[in-house]
Amino acid sequence: MKVSKTTKRFRIIFLSVIILFLYIPLFYIVIFSFNKSSSLLKMSGFSFKWYSQMFDNDQLMDAIWNTISCAIIATVVSTIIGTLGAIGLSKYKKNSRNILLAATNFPVLNPDIVTAIGLLLVFLLFNIKGGYFTMILAHISFCTPFVIITIYPKLKTLDSNTLEAAMDLGAKPLNAVVRVLIPQLKSAIFAAASMAFTMSFDDFVITYFVTGASINNISTYLYTVVLRKTKDLTVNAFSTILIIFIVIIVIIRFIIDQQKYKSKKIKN
């Protein structure tokens, strides 16, 4: 079925308009990060002052550090726990496995706010004071289920006999898992880890409730500090750096994609 040129043009315009819509607020943040004054309404001149001030803003720097370090720790821990968990669970009896998988689905389905208050109650019960530690525990708890539900389906498509074969040939069980299963799961593990990182990096609700007002990540810093006084554009400077970083990743990916496509074409 051939499509007419007008239809094609309409489709491209539609796609471009929607993509533009997703980027307008980002452009706006970038432009005003270079504003001389602290106004978000009027550009009064070009300056880098928010960038230099950003590094002097201790609260923001702490928030950035907390966000990144927590995301890294939560990603590493939840990826390891989740991967091993998926492998272990696959050997469970069907009934108990299904119950456990349903339980891991709770945080995936539940609204963040329900998960957040549940965790808050647990920390209250054990009398753990809200802070960096509770933030990390909470992030591990909501990242692990996502790791499991990413890896488990991939695990099911693998031939379970390979693990048995490795053990029959004398490999110790742990060795067999590391040498046989993990390499086959590499891409799923990577996908799970990047998902965990994004979720932890982006989290607001859960961090907000489990830390109290003791420490901030970027989201809670914005919510509790910046959006109330608003005369501070150092956050825009930080966002701009983040956006530039992401744009670079997108460009690199585009170049790789095009090269891959070309080499595929030559092969065919």
Binding site: T198, F201, F204, I218, S219, L222
Partner: peptide, 8 residues
């Protein structure tokens, strides 16, 4: 855009 913090 999802990688830029939602609050931002």
């Amino acid at each position: 855009p999802m990688w830029v913090n939602m609050t931002l």
